[in-house]
Design a protein around this nucleic acid. Structure first.
Length: 180
DNA sequence: GAGTGCGTATAAG
DNA sequence: CTTATACGCACTC
């Protein structure tokens, strides 16, 4: 598959807003898979986020069709029931090898369990790079699908979260309540 | 090159 | 238990 960069020629981004128990979520996909999924305040905020993250993309808001519609429906279900890892992702846009290695490690954390920044660093063969891992996790473009909320500090503190630590806590508690 | 950030281990208050 | 400090590394400008 061709490697895209944010400086490449314009390309289409299919966007849709989903309402879930944790708030409003914008989902965006390319022809290859979901490339963004994040919590937003409102419609304007969603567009701002997408334009900022993917400056060269043409954002298409018309109702999705074809595979995009299928993927978005999978995300909607994931957010209302239980997050599963079999949703096609397109993370090649604006990301580094290190980041993708971190994100891949996050996908190995089972639903309802927790890990730490330091452990993830060791898992990907970069012991001591916990802070770099934190930064990479913070750039995770697909909330919950790549479960960055399952990583906390080694001392048990909640740690930071791109979309707010209260939301992180809520996601962790919800996962654990589902398992009970 | 210098500055930054979703960390960690250690030591002291 | 909380705060301070030194160290860590990928990334950005």
């Amino acid at each position: 598959m061709p490697r895209r960069s944010k400086d490449a020629l314009s390309w289409r981004l299919y966007a849709q807003i989903i309402e879930c128990q944790f708030g409003r979520v914008v989902v965006a996909s390319t022809q290859a898979g979901i490339c963004y999924c994040g919590f937003v305040k409102d419609h304007i905020g969603a567009l701002d986020e997408l334009r900022k993250r993917f400056p060269s993309a043409i954002v298409v808001e018309t109702p999705c069709h074809g595979v995009s519609a299928t993927w978005h429906e999978m995300v909607r279900v994931a957010f209302t029931n239980r997050f599963q890892g079999d949703i096609p992702l397109d993370l090649e846009v604006c990301s580094t090898v290190f980041q993708r290695r971190v994100w891949n490690a996050l996908c190995q954390i089972p639903f309802g369990t927790l890990s730490t920044y330091g452990k993830i660093a060791s898992d990907i063969g970069a012991p001591g790079a916990s802070r770099a891992v934190g930064t990479a996790i913070g750039k995770n473009p697909v909330a919950c699908i790549i479960p960055c909320h399952r990583v906390i500090c080694s001392n048990g503190q909640i740690g930071n979260y791109h979309w707010g630590s209260d939301l992180k806590r809520a996601l962790i508690e919800w996962e654990q309540s589902v398992l009970r």
